[in-house]
C-alpha cells in the first residue's frame, strides 16, 4: 500500500545516489516539483530515463546530478534546443553525460517490456538507421514463424519511476487523465513508484480514458498542487508555453542558468513542506 508523505520525505526515502530514475509524462503531467526536490537534496550520479528529456532533465543535467541519459527526443518542444543537455553532451559541462539514444517507438516498447516482465520487446524499427551503431540496447531477432528480421529492444526497469497525476484518494490510489503518455508502463516497470498529485480526494471518480494505479503498485504519494508546472495537469492548469519560451534564454548561458536554479529551486521551500 502506498503511503502519503511530504514530497521531501518521499524523495529522500525513494531516490538514492546512483539510481536509475524515470520521471515520465509526455508533455502533459511532467513531475517538475519532484525533480526540483532532487536538486535541493543533491541526489547525484543518476541515470535518467525519459522519452523527451524536456526542460525537467535540462535542469537536472545542468545541476550536475546526471551521469547517463536514456532518451529519444531531446529538444524544447516547439522552441528549439535544450541548451544544458547540449552543453553536457558537446562540452562535458558541468560533467560528461553518457547517452543511450532511441526512437520514441523503441523507448515506448522498452517500457512495455519492463512492465510485462519480459527481457525485451519486438518492433518494426531502426532498420537502415545509424541509431543501432550507438547503443547496445537494440538488436535484431528473427520471427520464429516467418523468419522475418525484426528489431529487439532491451527492457527498461527503473529503480524509481516518478509521475504527476491529478488525484489520489486517502488510501493512495491514483488517477490521471488527459494525455496519459507512457506513465502506466513506466510505473509498472519500476521497482518503486512516487506519484505527486494535484489533490488528495476522499473518493476517486473514475474518468473515461483515465489511468488508475491502485495503491498497491504505488510506493508513495505526495500532494503537490501545481507540481507539473511549467507542464500542466488537465482539469487543473494549462501548459505555461511562455515559460518554455523563456527557458531558451535562461538556459542558454551557464551563469544565467545557475542563478535561476539558485533563485527558483535551491532558495525555495518545497511546496508540500507547509
Amino acid at each position: 500500500m502506498s503511503e502519503i508523505r511530504l514530497l521531501r520525505d518521499a524523495v529522500a526515502q525513494l531516490i538514492h545516489d546512483g539510481d536509475i530514475v524515470a520521471f515520465e509524462g509526455f508533455t502533459h503531467l511532467i513531475p517538475f516539483a519532484a525533480a526540483h526536490e532532487v536538486i535541493r537534496q543533491g541526489i547525484t550520479d543518476l541515470t535518467l530515463v525519459r522519452m523527451t528529456p524536456d526542460v525537467i532533465y535540462d535542469q537536472l543535467i545542468g545541476a550536475g546530478l546526471v551521469k547517463k541519459l536514456v532518451f529519444s527526443w531531446g529538444g524544447n518542444p516547439g522552441v528549439g534546443s535544450l541548451h544544458r543537455f547540449r552543453d553536457a553532451v558537446e562540452n562535458g559541462w558541468p560533467r560528461p553525460l553518457e547517452i543511450d539514444e532511441h526512437s520514441h517507438a523503441g523507448m515506448a516498447n522498452r517500457y512495455v517490456a519492463g512492465a510485462s516482465g519480459l527481457p525485451f520487446a519486438v518492433l518494426r524499427g531502426y532498420r537502415g538507421t545509424d541509431l543501432v551503431e550507438r547503443t547496445n540496447t537494440v538488436s535484431t531477432i528473427a520471427c520464429p514463424f516467418t523468419g522475418e528480421e525484426l528489431a529487439a529492444v532491451a527492457a527498461l526497469n527503473p529503480d524509481v519511476t516518478v509521475i504527476h497525476a491529478q488525484q489520489a484518494d486517502r488510501d493512495g490510489n491514483v488517477q490521471l487523465w488527459g494525455l496519459t503518455g507512457v506513465q502506466k508502463e513506466a510505473a509498472l516497470a519500476a521497482k518503486r513508484v512516487l506519484v505527486t498529485v494535484e489533490e488528495i480526494v476522499d473518493r476517486l471518480t473514475l474518468r473515461p480514458g483515465g489511468v488508475v494505479l491502485p495503491s498497491w503498485v504505488v510506493t508513495a504519494v505526495a500532494e503537490v498542487p501545481g507540481g507539473a508546472h511549467p507542464s500542466y495537469a488537465t482539469g487543473y492548469s494549462i501548459r505555461d508555453n511562455d515559460f518554455y519560451q523563456a527557458w531558451d534564454r535562461i538556459s542558454r548561458d551557464r551563469q544565467t542558468f545557475t542563478g535561476w536554479v539558485d533563485d527558483h529551486i535551491l532558495r525555495t521551500e518545497e511546496a508540500s513542506a507547509r
Binding site: S72, S81, E90, H104
Partner: peptide, 16 residues
C-alpha cells in the same frame, strides 16, 4: 565536438 540535435523522436517509425 559533434553538434547535438534533438534526435529521433517518432520520425524513424513515421518514415517507415
Amino acid at each position: 565536438p559533434e553538434g547535438r540535435l534533438p534526435g529521433a523522436g517518432g520520425a524513424p517509425e513515421i518514415a517507415a
